[in-house]
């Protein structure tokens, strides 16, 4: 049985990297005695796959992973057993039983909603706020991506689906698909460059509020949270 698990991660646990979070959840499955399925072979491992790796330093209220289970008792029972063994800062928010034919979490990821605030509670500079509309109104939003080998100029604009700005908060719904994934801090960095203000991404706290699949198409998106995607109605 395919089961999708939604979790949040806050506070100090944001410094735990993606691979370590995978190991963490594997141990959680054992502590909570979840009836998870194991692969065959000489060294069996739990069948578990994550939707979208979360970078070190980021928080989330909407991350997902899929597991396969041998038996599924009931949602509340599994949730409470898992939450009983969570580290402070990590919570299981939702569990959904998926249709056997549902695409896996990683392949389903189309978009993500991010909320960006200042680590120290600061507000955006008036200079920045004054130019937000102008910035997003450009035909192209160019961002210079530094890779190991070279620098690459990309246009962020087609990957930004929605955004909102307030004194203390920047929210954006952006492309998170494997082909077009962009980061919320890339947008901010481009904005700061546009305004000629020095940028340090470590000034900001990024929270992934939700991860979405696309029930629509490229012309007309219809983003639905991953927990509702491929779910068997309960």
């Amino acid at each position: 049985m395919k089961v999708r698990i939604k979790f949040s991660k806050h506070g100090p646990t944001k410094y735990i990297g993606h691979l370590d979070m995978m190991r963490y959840f594997q141990k959680c499955m054992r502590r909570a005695e979840i009836d998870i399925k194991y692969s065959g072979g000489y060294s069996p491992h739990q069948i578990m796959s994550f939707a979208h790796p979360l970078g070190v330093g980021m928080e989330t209220d909407g991350d997902y992973f899929d597991i396969e289970m041998n038996s599924f008792s009931d949602k509340e029972d599994i949730m409470s057993r898992l939450n009983a063994v969570m580290a402070t800062g990590v919570r299981i928010l939702d569990i959904s039983l998926l249709d056997d034919k549902a695409p896996n979490a990683m392949a389903s990821v189309a978009a993500a909603l991010y909320k960006v605030t200042f680590e120290n509670g600061d507000s955006f500079l008036p200079d920045i706020l004054a130019r937000v509309e102008q910035f997003f109104g450009q035909d192209e939003i160019l961002y210079t991506k530094e890779t190991k080998k070279n620098t690459l100029e990309v246009d962020l604009k087609p990957h930004i689906y929605n955004y909102s700005f307030s004194d203390k908060e920047f929210e954006c719904l952006v492309d998170a698909s494997s082909a077009g994934n962009i980061k919320s801090t890339q947008i901010l960095e481009a904005l700061y460059a546009y305004c000629n203000v020095a940028f340090d991404k470590n000034d900001f706290l990024v929270n992934r509020v939700e991860t979405f699949a696309d029930a629509g198409n490229d012309e007309l998106h219809n983003f639905v949270p991953l927990s509702n995607w491929g779910k068997i109605n309960d």
């Binding site: 410094y15 735990i16 070190v56 063994v85 800062g89 470590n202």
Partner: peptide, 15 residues
């Protein structure tokens, strides 16, 4: 914490 290697060494909070 973002500038150093393996920041999770210094946060405690483990199971």
């Amino acid at each position: 914490l973002m500038a150093i290697d393996k920041p999770a060494r210094y946060i405690g909070n483990e199971i």
